[in-house]
Design a binder for these strands. Structure first.
Lengths: 208, 208
DNA sequence: ACCTGAACACCGTTCAAGT
DNA sequence: ACCTGAACACCGTTCAAGT
Protein backbone atom coordinates (compact mmCIF):
# COMPACT_ATOMS: atom_id res chain seq x y z
CA UNK A 1 0.00 0.00 0.00
CA UNK A 2 1.24 3.47 -0.86
CA UNK A 3 2.34 5.69 2.00
CA UNK A 4 -0.37 8.32 1.53
CA UNK A 5 -3.03 5.62 1.26
CA UNK A 6 -1.98 4.07 4.57
CA UNK A 7 -1.96 7.48 6.23
CA UNK A 8 -5.41 8.32 4.87
CA UNK A 9 -6.77 5.02 6.10
CA UNK A 10 -5.50 5.67 9.62
CA UNK A 11 -6.90 9.17 9.56
CA UNK A 12 -10.30 7.89 8.43
CA UNK A 13 -10.43 5.28 11.18
CA UNK A 14 -9.48 7.84 13.80
CA UNK A 15 -12.04 10.38 12.60
CA UNK A 16 -14.76 7.75 12.32
CA UNK A 17 -14.04 6.37 15.77
CA UNK A 18 -14.24 9.80 17.39
CA UNK A 19 -17.40 10.79 15.54
CA UNK A 20 -19.24 7.49 15.95
CA UNK A 21 -18.39 7.09 19.63
CA UNK A 22 -19.65 10.55 20.46
CA UNK A 23 -22.63 10.98 18.15
CA UNK A 24 -23.58 7.43 17.14
CA UNK A 25 -23.69 5.82 13.73
CA UNK A 26 -25.88 8.54 12.25
CA UNK A 27 -23.02 10.91 11.48
CA UNK A 28 -22.61 11.29 7.74
CA UNK A 29 -19.69 10.10 5.65
CA UNK A 30 -19.13 13.66 4.43
CA UNK A 31 -18.50 14.79 8.01
CA UNK A 32 -16.06 11.96 8.63
CA UNK A 33 -14.17 12.59 5.40
CA UNK A 34 -13.99 16.28 6.27
CA UNK A 35 -12.67 15.55 9.78
CA UNK A 36 -10.09 13.19 8.29
CA UNK A 37 -9.06 15.81 5.74
CA UNK A 38 -9.72 13.58 2.71
CA UNK A 39 -12.27 13.49 -0.10
CA UNK A 40 -15.43 11.43 0.14
CA UNK A 41 -14.24 9.24 -2.68
CA UNK A 42 -11.19 8.25 -0.66
CA UNK A 43 -13.40 7.07 2.14
CA UNK A 44 -15.29 4.79 -0.21
CA UNK A 45 -12.08 3.54 -1.78
CA UNK A 46 -10.91 2.24 1.60
CA UNK A 47 -14.33 1.15 2.83
CA UNK A 48 -16.72 0.15 0.00
CA UNK A 49 -19.77 0.94 2.13
CA UNK A 50 -20.40 2.89 5.32
CA UNK A 51 -21.13 -0.41 7.04
CA UNK A 52 -17.62 -1.59 6.22
CA UNK A 53 -16.21 1.47 7.95
CA UNK A 54 -18.37 0.78 10.98
CA UNK A 55 -17.28 -2.85 11.03
CA UNK A 56 -13.63 -1.75 11.01
CA UNK A 57 -14.26 0.33 14.13
CA UNK A 58 -16.13 -2.52 15.80
CA UNK A 59 -13.20 -4.87 15.12
CA UNK A 60 -11.28 -2.85 17.67
CA UNK A 61 -14.13 -2.69 20.15
CA UNK A 62 -14.72 -6.42 20.32
CA UNK A 63 -11.20 -6.90 21.65
CA UNK A 64 -12.25 -5.08 24.81
CA UNK A 65 -15.26 -7.35 25.14
CA UNK A 66 -12.98 -10.37 24.90
CA UNK A 67 -10.80 -9.09 27.71
CA UNK A 68 -13.79 -8.55 29.98
CA UNK A 69 -15.09 -12.03 29.15
CA UNK A 70 -11.70 -13.45 30.18
CA UNK A 71 -11.80 -11.60 33.48
CA UNK A 72 -15.37 -12.77 34.07
CA UNK A 73 -14.37 -16.39 33.38
CA UNK A 74 -11.62 -16.14 35.99
CA UNK A 75 -14.01 -15.02 38.71
CA UNK A 76 -14.31 -17.88 41.24
CA UNK A 77 -18.02 -17.02 41.65
CA UNK A 78 -19.65 -17.84 38.28
CA UNK A 79 -22.79 -15.80 38.99
CA UNK A 80 -20.70 -12.75 39.87
CA UNK A 81 -18.75 -13.25 36.65
CA UNK A 82 -21.90 -13.42 34.56
CA UNK A 83 -23.36 -10.38 36.25
CA UNK A 84 -20.13 -8.47 35.74
CA UNK A 85 -20.08 -9.29 32.02
CA UNK A 86 -23.65 -8.09 31.55
CA UNK A 87 -23.12 -4.92 33.53
CA UNK A 88 -19.86 -4.02 31.80
CA UNK A 89 -21.33 -4.62 28.35
CA UNK A 90 -24.29 -2.39 29.06
CA UNK A 91 -22.12 0.30 30.62
CA UNK A 92 -20.04 0.21 27.45
CA UNK A 93 -23.23 0.72 25.44
CA UNK A 94 -24.09 3.86 27.36
CA UNK A 95 -20.53 5.14 27.12
CA UNK A 96 -20.18 4.41 23.41
CA UNK A 97 -23.12 5.36 21.24
CA UNK A 98 -21.61 3.52 18.28
CA UNK A 99 -21.60 0.22 20.14
CA UNK A 100 -25.18 0.70 21.23
CA UNK A 101 -26.37 1.50 17.70
CA UNK A 102 -24.42 -1.44 16.32
CA UNK A 103 -25.97 -3.88 18.80
CA UNK A 104 -29.46 -2.46 18.34
CA UNK A 105 -29.28 -2.84 14.58
CA UNK A 106 -27.35 -6.11 14.65
CA UNK A 107 -24.64 -4.93 12.34
CA UNK A 108 -22.04 -6.85 14.27
CA UNK A 109 -20.90 -9.02 11.39
CA UNK A 110 -18.54 -11.81 10.57
CA UNK A 111 -15.11 -10.95 9.28
CA UNK A 112 -11.75 -10.39 10.85
CA UNK A 113 -13.07 -10.93 14.34
CA UNK A 114 -15.06 -14.09 13.65
CA UNK A 115 -12.57 -15.95 15.85
CA UNK A 116 -12.77 -13.43 18.63
CA UNK A 117 -16.53 -13.76 18.71
CA UNK A 118 -16.25 -17.55 18.95
CA UNK A 119 -13.78 -17.19 21.81
CA UNK A 120 -16.13 -14.87 23.69
CA UNK A 121 -19.00 -17.32 23.28
CA UNK A 122 -16.79 -20.15 24.56
CA UNK A 123 -15.84 -18.14 27.63
CA UNK A 124 -19.49 -17.35 28.28
CA UNK A 125 -20.37 -21.02 27.84
CA UNK A 126 -17.78 -21.90 30.47
CA UNK A 127 -19.12 -19.36 32.95
CA UNK A 128 -22.70 -20.50 32.37
CA UNK A 129 -21.82 -24.21 32.69
CA UNK A 130 -20.04 -23.58 36.00
CA UNK A 131 -23.00 -21.55 37.21
CA UNK A 132 -25.35 -24.35 36.30
CA UNK A 133 -23.17 -26.91 38.08
CA UNK A 134 -23.23 -24.68 41.14
CA UNK A 135 -27.03 -24.54 40.84
CA UNK A 136 -27.28 -20.77 40.49
CA UNK A 137 -27.94 -20.38 36.74
CA UNK A 138 -31.11 -21.66 35.04
CA UNK A 139 -30.31 -24.97 33.34
CA UNK A 140 -31.52 -24.01 29.85
CA UNK A 141 -29.47 -20.82 29.42
CA UNK A 142 -26.87 -20.94 26.62
CA UNK A 143 -24.01 -18.66 25.61
CA UNK A 144 -25.72 -17.58 22.39
CA UNK A 145 -28.64 -16.27 24.44
CA UNK A 146 -26.39 -13.61 25.96
CA UNK A 147 -26.08 -11.25 22.94
CA UNK A 148 -29.86 -11.37 22.51
CA UNK A 149 -30.45 -10.51 26.14
CA UNK A 150 -27.82 -7.76 26.02
CA UNK A 151 -29.46 -6.24 22.99
CA UNK A 152 -32.87 -6.53 24.67
CA UNK A 153 -31.84 -4.76 27.87
CA UNK A 154 -29.85 -2.28 25.80
CA UNK A 155 -33.08 -1.31 24.07
CA UNK A 156 -34.19 0.18 27.38
CA UNK A 157 -30.92 2.04 27.90
CA UNK A 158 -32.00 5.14 26.02
CA UNK A 159 -32.25 8.20 28.17
CA UNK A 160 -35.39 10.23 27.51
CA UNK A 161 -36.60 13.58 28.88
CA UNK A 162 -37.28 13.39 32.59
CA UNK A 163 -36.19 9.80 33.09
CA UNK A 164 -33.18 8.62 35.09
CA UNK A 165 -30.42 7.73 32.61
CA UNK A 166 -29.44 4.52 34.37
CA UNK A 167 -32.89 2.95 34.10
CA UNK A 168 -31.42 -0.02 32.20
CA UNK A 169 -29.91 -1.18 35.50
CA UNK A 170 -33.45 -1.76 36.74
CA UNK A 171 -34.31 -4.02 33.82
CA UNK A 172 -30.97 -5.77 33.93
CA UNK A 173 -31.75 -6.71 37.53
CA UNK A 174 -35.12 -8.12 36.52
CA UNK A 175 -33.68 -10.01 33.56
CA UNK A 176 -30.85 -11.41 35.68
CA UNK A 177 -33.42 -12.58 38.22
CA UNK A 178 -35.02 -14.47 35.34
CA UNK A 179 -31.70 -16.16 34.61
CA UNK A 180 -31.31 -17.62 38.09
CA UNK A 181 -31.90 -21.30 38.76
CA UNK A 182 -34.72 -20.62 41.22
CA UNK A 183 -38.12 -20.86 39.55
CA UNK A 184 -37.13 -21.21 35.91
CA UNK A 185 -39.89 -22.18 33.48
CA UNK A 186 -39.39 -24.12 30.28
CA UNK A 187 -38.00 -21.59 27.79
CA UNK A 188 -37.83 -23.93 24.78
CA UNK A 189 -35.09 -24.26 22.19
CA UNK A 190 -32.10 -21.88 22.25
CA UNK A 191 -31.08 -20.13 19.02
CA UNK A 192 -28.57 -22.07 16.88
CA UNK A 193 -24.93 -21.31 17.53
CA UNK A 194 -24.43 -19.34 14.33
CA UNK A 195 -27.54 -17.26 14.82
CA UNK A 196 -25.86 -14.17 16.21
CA UNK A 197 -24.80 -12.89 12.82
CA UNK A 198 -27.09 -10.87 10.65
CA UNK A 199 -25.92 -9.23 7.47
CA UNK A 200 -29.36 -8.46 6.08
CA UNK A 201 -29.81 -5.37 8.20
CA UNK A 202 -28.15 -2.06 7.48
CA UNK A 203 -27.47 1.07 9.43
CA UNK A 204 -30.53 3.11 10.26
CA UNK A 205 -30.45 6.83 9.85
CA UNK A 206 -32.53 9.11 11.99
CA UNK A 207 -34.83 11.44 10.09
CA UNK A 208 -33.94 15.11 10.19
CA UNK B 1 -63.89 20.02 5.87
CA UNK B 2 -64.47 19.89 2.13
CA UNK B 3 -65.74 16.62 0.69
CA UNK B 4 -62.67 15.88 -1.42
CA UNK B 5 -60.39 16.70 1.49
CA UNK B 6 -62.19 14.22 3.75
CA UNK B 7 -62.03 11.55 1.07
CA UNK B 8 -58.32 12.12 0.49
CA UNK B 9 -57.65 11.88 4.20
CA UNK B 10 -59.41 8.52 4.42
CA UNK B 11 -57.57 7.25 1.37
CA UNK B 12 -54.24 8.31 2.83
CA UNK B 13 -54.90 6.59 6.14
CA UNK B 14 -55.95 3.39 4.38
CA UNK B 15 -52.94 3.37 2.08
CA UNK B 16 -50.57 4.16 4.94
CA UNK B 17 -52.02 1.46 7.18
CA UNK B 18 -51.67 -1.21 4.50
CA UNK B 19 -48.15 -0.18 3.56
CA UNK B 20 -46.85 0.28 7.09
CA UNK B 21 -48.37 -2.92 8.45
CA UNK B 22 -46.83 -5.01 5.72
CA UNK B 23 -43.46 -3.34 5.12
CA UNK B 24 -42.83 -1.36 8.28
CA UNK B 25 -42.35 2.36 8.76
CA UNK B 26 -39.61 2.59 6.14
CA UNK B 27 -41.94 2.90 3.16
CA UNK B 28 -41.65 6.33 1.61
CA UNK B 29 -44.29 9.04 1.59
CA UNK B 30 -44.17 9.10 -2.22
CA UNK B 31 -45.25 5.45 -2.31
CA UNK B 32 -48.11 6.09 0.11
CA UNK B 33 -49.32 9.15 -1.80
CA UNK B 34 -49.16 7.13 -5.02
CA UNK B 35 -51.16 4.26 -3.50
CA UNK B 36 -53.73 6.73 -2.20
CA UNK B 37 -53.94 8.41 -5.60
CA UNK B 38 -53.06 11.90 -4.32
CA UNK B 39 -50.11 14.26 -4.64
CA UNK B 40 -47.32 14.30 -2.09
CA UNK B 41 -48.27 17.81 -1.09
CA UNK B 42 -51.74 16.62 -0.11
CA UNK B 43 -50.22 14.09 2.26
CA UNK B 44 -48.25 16.82 4.01
CA UNK B 45 -51.28 19.09 4.13
CA UNK B 46 -53.17 16.48 6.16
CA UNK B 47 -50.18 15.27 8.15
CA UNK B 48 -47.48 17.94 8.63
CA UNK B 49 -44.76 15.30 9.08
CA UNK B 50 -44.45 11.60 8.34
CA UNK B 51 -44.45 11.00 12.09
CA UNK B 52 -47.91 12.58 12.32
CA UNK B 53 -49.19 10.13 9.75
CA UNK B 54 -47.69 7.25 11.69
CA UNK B 55 -49.23 8.54 14.92
CA UNK B 56 -52.65 8.64 13.24
CA UNK B 57 -52.31 4.95 12.34
CA UNK B 58 -51.15 4.13 15.85
CA UNK B 59 -54.18 5.89 17.29
CA UNK B 60 -56.25 3.05 15.87
CA UNK B 61 -53.86 0.33 17.00
CA UNK B 62 -53.79 1.38 20.62
CA UNK B 63 -57.53 0.73 20.89
CA UNK B 64 -56.83 -2.97 20.37
CA UNK B 65 -54.22 -2.86 23.11
CA UNK B 66 -56.78 -1.33 25.46
CA UNK B 67 -59.24 -4.13 24.79
CA UNK B 68 -56.66 -6.80 25.50
CA UNK B 69 -55.68 -5.00 28.72
CA UNK B 70 -59.33 -5.06 29.78
CA UNK B 71 -59.59 -8.78 29.12
CA UNK B 72 -56.37 -9.39 31.02
CA UNK B 73 -57.67 -7.40 34.00
CA UNK B 74 -60.78 -9.58 34.12
CA UNK B 75 -58.77 -12.78 34.32
CA UNK B 76 -59.28 -14.20 37.85
CA UNK B 77 -55.63 -15.34 37.80
CA UNK B 78 -53.55 -12.12 37.79
CA UNK B 79 -50.36 -13.87 36.67
CA UNK B 80 -52.16 -15.46 33.73
CA UNK B 81 -53.57 -12.04 32.84
CA UNK B 82 -50.16 -10.42 32.90
CA UNK B 83 -48.63 -13.22 30.86
CA UNK B 84 -51.47 -12.99 28.33
CA UNK B 85 -50.97 -9.23 27.92
CA UNK B 86 -47.25 -9.63 27.29
CA UNK B 87 -47.72 -12.49 24.85
CA UNK B 88 -50.49 -10.77 22.90
CA UNK B 89 -48.51 -7.52 22.63
CA UNK B 90 -45.47 -9.33 21.31
CA UNK B 91 -47.51 -11.42 18.88
CA UNK B 92 -49.00 -8.16 17.61
CA UNK B 93 -45.48 -6.85 17.08
CA UNK B 94 -44.56 -9.80 14.89
CA UNK B 95 -47.83 -9.56 12.98
CA UNK B 96 -47.63 -5.81 12.45
CA UNK B 97 -44.26 -4.46 11.40
CA UNK B 98 -45.46 -0.89 11.94
CA UNK B 99 -46.20 -1.52 15.61
CA UNK B 100 -42.83 -3.16 16.10
CA UNK B 101 -40.96 -0.27 14.48
CA UNK B 102 -42.99 2.24 16.45
CA UNK B 103 -42.19 0.56 19.77
CA UNK B 104 -38.54 0.06 18.90
CA UNK B 105 -38.09 3.72 18.05
CA UNK B 106 -40.37 5.03 20.79
CA UNK B 107 -42.48 7.14 18.47
CA UNK B 108 -45.58 6.31 20.43
CA UNK B 109 -46.46 9.86 21.35
CA UNK B 110 -48.94 11.88 23.27
CA UNK B 111 -52.01 13.21 21.49
CA UNK B 112 -55.49 11.93 20.85
CA UNK B 113 -54.89 8.68 22.68
CA UNK B 114 -53.24 10.15 25.75
CA UNK B 115 -56.29 9.04 27.76
CA UNK B 116 -56.26 5.56 26.30
CA UNK B 117 -52.65 5.14 27.28
CA UNK B 118 -53.44 6.24 30.83
CA UNK B 119 -56.30 3.76 30.99
CA UNK B 120 -54.07 0.92 29.81
CA UNK B 121 -51.49 1.78 32.47
CA UNK B 122 -54.21 1.82 35.13
CA UNK B 123 -55.44 -1.60 34.07
CA UNK B 124 -51.89 -2.92 34.17
CA UNK B 125 -51.42 -1.37 37.60
CA UNK B 126 -54.52 -3.21 38.81
CA UNK B 127 -53.31 -6.56 37.45
CA UNK B 128 -49.86 -6.08 38.96
CA UNK B 129 -51.24 -5.00 42.35
CA UNK B 130 -53.49 -8.07 42.50
CA UNK B 131 -50.57 -10.28 41.51
CA UNK B 132 -48.44 -8.75 44.24
CA UNK B 133 -51.20 -9.28 46.82
CA UNK B 134 -51.39 -12.91 45.69
CA UNK B 135 -47.64 -13.13 46.14
CA UNK B 136 -46.85 -14.12 42.55
CA UNK B 137 -45.51 -10.84 41.13
CA UNK B 138 -42.28 -9.23 42.34
CA UNK B 139 -43.16 -6.42 44.75
CA UNK B 140 -41.25 -3.64 42.97
CA UNK B 141 -42.79 -4.04 39.51
CA UNK B 142 -44.83 -1.07 38.28
CA UNK B 143 -47.17 -0.55 35.33
CA UNK B 144 -44.81 1.87 33.61
CA UNK B 145 -42.15 -0.84 33.54
CA UNK B 146 -44.28 -2.88 31.14
CA UNK B 147 -43.75 -0.83 27.95
CA UNK B 148 -40.00 -0.86 28.57
CA UNK B 149 -39.94 -4.61 29.03
CA UNK B 150 -42.15 -5.10 25.97
CA UNK B 151 -39.83 -2.98 23.90
CA UNK B 152 -36.85 -4.89 25.28
CA UNK B 153 -38.18 -8.35 24.47
CA UNK B 154 -39.46 -7.02 21.15
CA UNK B 155 -35.87 -6.15 20.27
CA UNK B 156 -35.18 -9.89 20.12
CA UNK B 157 -38.25 -10.58 17.98
CA UNK B 158 -36.46 -10.03 14.68
CA UNK B 159 -36.21 -13.09 12.54
CA UNK B 160 -32.79 -13.57 10.99
CA UNK B 161 -31.41 -16.15 8.55
CA UNK B 162 -31.41 -19.64 10.03
CA UNK B 163 -33.03 -18.76 13.34
CA UNK B 164 -36.48 -19.81 14.52
CA UNK B 165 -38.83 -16.85 14.05
CA UNK B 166 -40.53 -17.26 17.43
CA UNK B 167 -37.29 -16.93 19.42
CA UNK B 168 -38.77 -13.97 21.33
CA UNK B 169 -40.98 -16.47 23.20
CA UNK B 170 -37.82 -17.86 24.75
CA UNK B 171 -36.74 -14.47 26.08
CA UNK B 172 -40.25 -13.57 27.15
CA UNK B 173 -40.23 -16.70 29.30
CA UNK B 174 -36.94 -15.70 30.88
CA UNK B 175 -38.05 -12.12 31.47
CA UNK B 176 -41.37 -13.26 32.95
CA UNK B 177 -39.46 -15.57 35.29
CA UNK B 178 -37.62 -12.45 36.41
CA UNK B 179 -40.94 -10.75 37.18
CA UNK B 180 -42.11 -13.46 39.59
CA UNK B 181 -42.10 -12.91 43.31
CA UNK B 182 -39.69 -15.81 43.95
CA UNK B 183 -36.12 -14.58 44.25
CA UNK B 184 -36.51 -10.96 43.25
CA UNK B 185 -33.51 -8.69 43.87
CA UNK B 186 -33.66 -4.98 44.57
CA UNK B 187 -34.27 -3.35 41.20
CA UNK B 188 -34.19 0.26 42.38
CA UNK B 189 -36.43 3.13 41.38
CA UNK B 190 -39.07 2.66 38.66
CA UNK B 191 -39.29 5.20 35.84
CA UNK B 192 -41.57 8.19 36.54
CA UNK B 193 -45.17 7.78 35.41
CA UNK B 194 -44.85 10.18 32.50
CA UNK B 195 -41.64 8.60 31.23
CA UNK B 196 -43.15 6.50 28.47
CA UNK B 197 -43.41 9.42 26.10
CA UNK B 198 -40.53 10.50 23.94
CA UNK B 199 -40.94 13.07 21.21
CA UNK B 200 -37.26 13.69 20.68
CA UNK B 201 -36.79 10.61 18.54
CA UNK B 202 -37.86 10.36 14.94
CA UNK B 203 -38.50 7.54 12.54
CA UNK B 204 -35.38 5.73 11.43
CA UNK B 205 -34.98 4.81 7.81
CA UNK B 206 -32.99 1.79 6.78
CA UNK B 207 -30.07 2.48 4.45
CA UNK B 208 -30.47 1.19 0.90
C1' DA C 1 -2.31 3.49 -7.83
C1' DC C 2 -4.60 6.64 -5.47
C1' DC C 3 -7.14 11.08 -4.64
C1' DT C 4 -10.75 14.46 -5.55
C1' DG C 5 -15.19 16.71 -5.75
C1' DA C 6 -18.97 17.05 -8.75
C1' DA C 7 -22.91 14.21 -9.92
C1' DC C 8 -26.48 10.76 -8.94
C1' DA C 9 -30.36 8.28 -6.67
C1' DC C 10 -33.28 8.47 -2.94
C1' DC C 11 -35.34 10.13 1.03
C1' DG C 12 -38.68 13.84 3.80
C1' DT C 13 -40.41 18.46 3.23
C1' DT C 14 -41.74 22.99 1.03
C1' DC C 15 -44.06 26.03 -2.02
C1' DA C 16 -45.51 28.59 -6.26
C1' DA C 17 -48.97 27.78 -9.28
C1' DG C 18 -53.20 25.99 -10.31
C1' DT C 19 -58.68 24.81 -9.44
C1' DA D 1 -59.76 25.95 0.70
C1' DC D 2 -57.57 22.48 -1.16
C1' DC D 3 -54.67 19.98 -4.64
C1' DT D 4 -50.50 19.29 -7.42
C1' DG D 5 -45.85 18.18 -8.80
C1' DA D 6 -41.59 20.41 -9.37
C1' DA D 7 -37.92 21.95 -6.39
C1' DC D 8 -35.05 21.69 -2.21
C1' DA D 9 -31.94 19.88 1.45
C1' DC D 10 -29.73 15.96 2.91
C1' DC D 11 -28.21 11.42 2.91
C1' DG D 12 -24.97 7.20 0.86
C1' DT D 13 -22.61 6.01 -3.33
C1' DT D 14 -20.38 6.43 -8.00
C1' DC D 15 -17.16 8.02 -11.38
C1' DA D 16 -14.70 11.00 -14.80
C1' DA D 17 -10.88 13.70 -14.36
C1' DG D 18 -6.74 14.72 -12.24
C1' DT D 19 -1.74 13.55 -9.94
Amino acid sequence: MRADAARNRTRLLKAAEAAFTEHGLDVGVAEIARRAGVGQGTLFRHFPTKDDLIAAIMDQRIQEVLEVAREAAQNPDPWAGLERFFTWSLEAQTRDRALKDALAHRIIREGAYEEVRREILELLATIIRRGQQAGVVRPDLTAQDVPFLLSAVGASADPFPGAPTGIWRRYLTMVLDGLRAGGASDAGEPPPAEAVIDLSRRVARTGS
